[in-house]
Design a protein around this nucleic acid. Structure first.
Lengths: 137, 137
DNA sequence: CAATACCCTATCGTTTTTATAGATTTTAAT
DNA sequence: ATTAAAATCTATAAAAACGATAGGGTATTG
């Protein structure tokens, strides 16, 4: 299951990207427009800022804004930051690899063999989608 | 993340398929060979039996055995029974569809658009793999 | 009778989600 | 320059859902 954190983060990014201006947008406005709990969204936007997707401006007239062009924001990066590893099992993860404790030989493991294919197919999707692609109706 | 239920279920099925005979195999033997907690495996084998993948024989000399040929066991079916929906979001699920409460229009939803592609790519992998494919070294 | 599968329930731990409270920074207005 | 409002940031933790495990009883077969 996709976590709500990821779902809300994607929606927030999409909303910001859909606006013509790159002026700061208040959290309250994003939360209201996308039907998200404001406080929860607050922490999500923070991690997106910390990971270089968003900039923020404090004080009156402040808010969050995209720091890169939607065309340059790859879903692989967004998903890894919000959802974590793309692989369903650590033993097939590129960025978060871990050996299975129970498995004596990965090359002979049926789970490994299947999940490797699933990872590759998911990666191809994420690599072929930028934030801009998700907006185009 | 792949649940351990699914992981163990797949390993158990693989082990049974790898044996030449289709005689009943005791839970204890499967658990030991695959490093799985016997009690946990018990409940997993039960759901595999209830869903038509395994047969069981009670009493002395009893155990579980494959009810179909490995070539006829599709990963789509196995994954749906063990892991649940293949889609990461209910609004793109074929077998477990549910409308999002917060989303006014699915066709304009960026999450929907992305997860639809992910679902299709995963489905293609599962449709192209039978239990027999996972055994072939 | 003994071995084994089946079934029901309770518990523990982790993750996810939401909620609360307050501190800090920045801006705009006076 | 000062003040007050607006907004971000930080920290904590309660609530809920889920995963994994364990215990013990019942039924069936050889």
């Amino acid at each position: 299951m996709l976590s709500k954190k990821t779902k809300y983060g994607l929606k927030a990014l999409t909303y910001l990207a859909s606006l013509e201006s790159r002026e700061p947008v208040q959290i309250a406005e994003i939360a209201k427009h996308e039907n998200i709990s404001q406080k929860f969204l607050e922490s999500i936007l923070l991690t997106l800022r910390r990971n270089g997707f968003l900039g923020s401006k404090k004080g009156k007239g402040g808010g969050y804004y995209l720091i890169k062009e939607p065309e340059d924001i790859l879903m692989t990066a967004v998903m890894r930051v919000l959802e974590g590893p793309i692989a369903m099992v650590p033993c097939v993860s590129l960025n978060f690899y871990e050996k299975c404790a129970d498995c004596p030989d990965e090359n002979k493991c049926s789970v490994n063999k299947l999940m490797l294919q699933v990872r590759d197919s998911a990666l191809e999707v994420y690599r072929n989608n930028t934030l801009a692609d998700l907006i185009a109706s």
